[in-house]
Amino acid sequence: MGEMIVSMDQDIRLDTTRARLSNLLKRHRELSDRLTRDSDKTMLDRLNKEFEAARRSQSQEVFLDGEEWNDGLLATLRERVHMEADRKADNGNAGFSLVCHPEERITYRVGNKVICCLDGSRIGIQFETSTAGETYEVYHCVLESKSFLEKMIVLEHTIPFFLPLSDLENDLLFSNAKKFIDNVGDLLQAYVDRKEQVRLIKELFGHQISEIYHSLPYHMIEFSMDDCDCKFVVSLRYGDLLCELPTKVRILVWPMHHLSKKQCTSPGSPAIPVRLPFAEDAFRIQSLPEAYAEIMPNMPNEIRQLFQTSPS
């Protein structure tokens, strides 16, 4: 059964949250326009072509698993790209597009990541996110260091600007490059999973949902419905950008005017927003479309019983 909300401050917080999410949507449109400038498209196209050339020119692709994927491999790649850069500088040979010798043109695949040598003392990482077993979106990150003794930096990338790549770079890249690469891959996959859940719930149940808001990284999601003679507001928060399921869920329901008069027969029936713990539990353990599909068939009976029963 529902849990009565005893403080009207929560109504105010809902309005505040909705206003903030509306502002985020406005910022999203503005930033999306900025990110579609020709310069950004040029960088994306250039990196796509460069990584495709590296994959085509490889002599072999090595699949790594478990302990085979470690910082030692990255150190070897760093040494290789610097040795090749020095060799090309000594020979005055600028004709190669790849840094490895033909017999050493190896790319490494680790889960959803492909790692390869690029020209100019650079190491490229391609992140292949997926949904339902199919490749969804591909992102690139290029690392560079001026010498083998200097720390690597992120030279350029196609990762969404609102994900904390700079924080990961500052915290991990110098001390643990492997963990940096793994965390970026996990961050992108979690972002894509949340994004796809929102897309699916719009596609499958958009005719039932009156409004839906989300932050840029999809770590704050809110949607409302006018159904079952009530208005619902579902608020989801993801405490960590690596989360695919929400860590905080709140579902509030208001009876519509005609329901409160005709069906709320008990003198103590709630007339203010009520939480629905049974529905909140479903959203904590399932994806958005799965949880929605599970709770909605029984929702009319649950709501009718809720507002016809006096709270104890």
Rank of each mutant, 00 (worst) to 15 (best):
S210K: 07
D193C: 12
R87M: 10
L252I: 02
S22G: 10
Y139V: 00
F180Q: 00
V249N: 00
N93A: 02
I295W: 13
K248I: 09
F283C: 02
V198Q: 06
L168H: 11
D33I: 08
V6K: 13
R27T: 03
E203T: 13
A177M: 15
Y136M: 06
D281L: 09
A89M: 10
H82T: 06
D65P: 07
L172M: 04
R194D: 07
R87G: 08
M256C: 09
H140G: 01
N70W: 09
R105S: 11
T42A: 13
N170K: 11
H219F: 09
H28M: 04
C117I: 05
Q189T: 06
L168C: 10
Q10E: 08
L44R: 15
S145L: 07
D38I: 08
Q286I: 01
A291T: 07
R34E: 13
L173K: 00
C100F: 00
K195R: 11
D240V: 10
D33T: 07
W69T: 00
M1Y: 12
L31Q: 10
F127G: 00
Q58N: 06
D281H: 13
E61I: 13
A177F: 04
E52A: 12
P267K: 01
I212S: 04
L252Q: 14
D240C: 11
R78H: 09
L200I: 15
R237D: 03
H258F: 10
D171K: 08
L64C: 06
V198G: 01
L163D: 08
D182L: 12
R304H: 15
V249T: 11
L25V: 03
S166L: 10
Q10S: 03
E203H: 08
Y139H: 14
E68T: 02
I12Y: 04
L77G: 05
D65W: 12
D71E: 08
L31I: 07
Q126F: 03
E50P: 02
P217Y: 09
Y136W: 10
K179V: 13
D171T: 05
L188F: 10
E61R: 12
R55C: 07
G72E: 15
P300T: 10
L252F: 15
D171Q: 13
L187V: 07
S312Q: 07
R105E: 09
L98H: 07
E169I: 01
L77Y: 04
R27H: 00
I201E: 01
E128Y: 05
E150G: 11
N183H: 06
S166F: 07
I123F: 03
E67S: 10
S175R: 08
N93T: 07
M299R: 00
V99T: 11
L24G: 00
G268K: 14
R13V: 02
R199I: 02
M83Y: 05
F205P: 05
G206L: 00
I251W: 04
E144V: 12
E203Q: 15
E169R: 15
D38N: 14
I123G: 01
R56T: 14
A85T: 07
R275S: 14
A282G: 04
W69M: 03
I12T: 04
Y191Q: 14
I295K: 02
G185C: 09
E294V: 00
E196N: 09
S7L: 03
L168N: 11
C100W: 00
R56E: 11
Q286A: 01
R304C: 13
